[in-house]
Design a protein around this nucleic acid. Structure first.
Length: 491
DNA sequence: TGAAATGTTGGGGCG
DNA sequence: ACGCCCCAACATTTC
């Protein structure tokens, strides 16, 4: 009779270090079956794009290699998690199922179903938090309600951060393996979506995997961390950590990042306390996004703030297409959209500029932009992506006022003062000087001729008049506020 | 984690 | 010398 086993279900936690579910699985001293399931019915698969799939495949193969070093294996399956795990549990006499929790509404349902079914079958199910500093229900106002403002949320969270950040589980030392292994899908035979050939940029730009994530963190801490606060808004300098894809796949935990930042000298970094460093604040926004999604799951679709439900949105499909393909005639917008399409990643500043342009200037609903980002971003967390779009469009809990509209030309000059970033992604205008490159349509004919650019032929005319679109947006939003107010009198 | 419009101030040119 | 106008430069308000 073969010994009973412990199933370790890997999800968006593709790492061995600081992985609480793994630690607990090892502690059972039973043979461990590490499983990853390509959920063919899940939200994750439906809404994600080729960049995401490329990274996932790389990361799975790296995780698989790491497990091999312990004589273990990553069992890869596709199908529904419930039936897949049930089958393995029955066949291999599993007594425990351990995993790290996820917080998307669809994943919560899946977790609940699995836990119920397994408990009924007398199998011990334990889940852990290895993805967040604080789970959505952990940070609440004194009256027990969730926070709706970032600053008060994060202040409260920071006061408890020592409790959550002290424990970092080290790499496993001993490992028990089964005598026989369940079948595993070779990655190359998995769902076709994961095996499509994608952009040439991905392999050059990214190195997925836990080791690479840790290395990226270390080199960021030694280099760009100090200038992060100023350089993170510069698209030409790559001043950000670029850790978001690693975080998204759980190759590194926020705990590890916070601990890394805390290990640096506050004085050298111009801080009194490294927790005030902007990088920590950005992790705070990630936490806040999960806090809001967890406590108000419906905001994923409809927005928290309903004041702008009456905005008369544009249904101009051409402007949406122009935005998606980087053909708007605004170089910084086109550069960002093309960069996103090619590499699956752009910095936060570019995300704000691009989304403000879509929602405020093109007057297209934020959901359209959010689903495009979800498909193209390599790092798209449902929570953070939704929060970003709601923040910029005014639908969020703690978002910008409706009249705050980014001017793409001014933003362009700030984020890319020398036009380096634009030249890289919009070669059509690369012969323009850094003073002219931000707004080609305003450049004198003679200069355009010398630079070999026929506006409207070689590079598109701006698809909207910025000033007009700004006015239109202000009127539309204001109109909606008034309608909302009059519809809600006395209710 | 805006930008534009409007208001105020102060220095210099000029009659 | 003086007041007036012009207009940067900066500050405040408004969207």
């Amino acid at each position: 009779m073969p010994p009973s086993t412990t199933i370790l279900w890997f999800r968006s936690d593709l790492r061995l270090e600081d992985n609480l579910a793994l630690g607990a699985a090892l502690a059972t001293r039973k043979p461990i079956l590490p499983v990853f399931i390509w959920d063919t019915e899940g939200q994750d698969i439906k809404s994600t794009g080729p960049h995401y799939c490329w990274w996932l495949k790389e990361s799975l193969s790296i995780l698989s290699n790491s497990l091999n070093r312990y004589g273990s294996k990553l069992i890869i399956r596709q199908g529904s998690p419930l039936s897949t795990l049930s089958n393995i549990a029955t066949e291999y006499d599993a007594r425990h199922l351990f995993f790290n929790r996820r917080y998307e509404p669809s994943e919560i349902r899946i977790q609940r179903d699995i836990t119920d079914k397994f408990n009924q079958a007398g199998i011990d199910v334990k889940s852990f938090n290895s993805t967040l500093l604080f789970e959505p229900h952990e940070i609440l106002k004194p009256n027990g309600e969730p926070y709706e403002r970032f600053s008060s949320f994060w202040n409260q969270a920071l006061s408890k951060i020592n409790e959550t950040c002290h424990s970092s589980v080290k790499n496993p030392s001993s490992w028990t393996n089964p005598e026989n292994w369940p079948d595993s899908f070779p990655l190359s035979l998995l769902h076709p979506k994961i095996n499509v050939t994608t952009s040439e940029y991905l392999g050059k730009m990214w190195a997925p995997g836990e080791t690479s994530a840790t290395r990226s963190l270390q080199s960021f801490l030694q280099g760009k961390l100090q200038r992060y606060e100023v350089d993170r808004d510069r698209s030409d300098l790559c001043g950000t950590s670029q850790l978001s894809p690693h975080l998204h796949f759980g190759e590194i935990s926020p705990r590890q990042i916070i601990n890394g930042v805390m290990s640096k000298s506050p004085i050298e970094n111009g801080q009194f306390n490294m927790l005030n460093h902007k990088l920590c604040t950005e992790l705070g926004w990630r936490e806040f996004a999960y806090h809001i999604l967890g406590n108000f799951p419906q905001t994923n679709k409809s927005g928290f703030n309903r004041k702008f439900d009456y905005v008369p949105w544009s249904d101009n499909i051409h402007s949406l297409t122009a935005w998606q393909t980087g053909q708007t005639g605004f170089p910084i917008i086109d550069a960002g959209m093309r960069n996103l399409a090619s590499t699956g990643w752009i910095n936060n500043r570019m995300r704000m500029i691009l989304s403000s342009f879509l929602v405020k200037n093109l007057l297209i609903p934020w959901q359209n932009g959010a689903s495009w980002f979800e498909k193209t971003l390599i790092d798209a967390d449902l929570a953070s992506n939704t929060m970003g779009w709601q923040w910029i469009s005014g639908f969020g809990t703690d978002s910008v006022p409706y009249f705050r509209i980014f001017n793409p030309v001014i933003q362009s000059k700030k984020t890319d003062p020398y036009g380096v970033y634009i030249k890289r992604w919009v070669p059509e205008v690369s012969k323009l000087s850094y003073t002219n490159i931000h707004e080609p349509s305003m450049v004198e004919d003679g200069i355009l001729r010398k630079a070999n650019i026929r506006i409207g032929v070689d590079y598109p005319l701006p698809i909207i008049d910025y000033k007009v679109s700004r006015r239109r947006s202000l009127d539309a939003y204001k109109h909606s506020t008034e309608l909302y107010a009059s519809n809600n009198v006395g209710s």
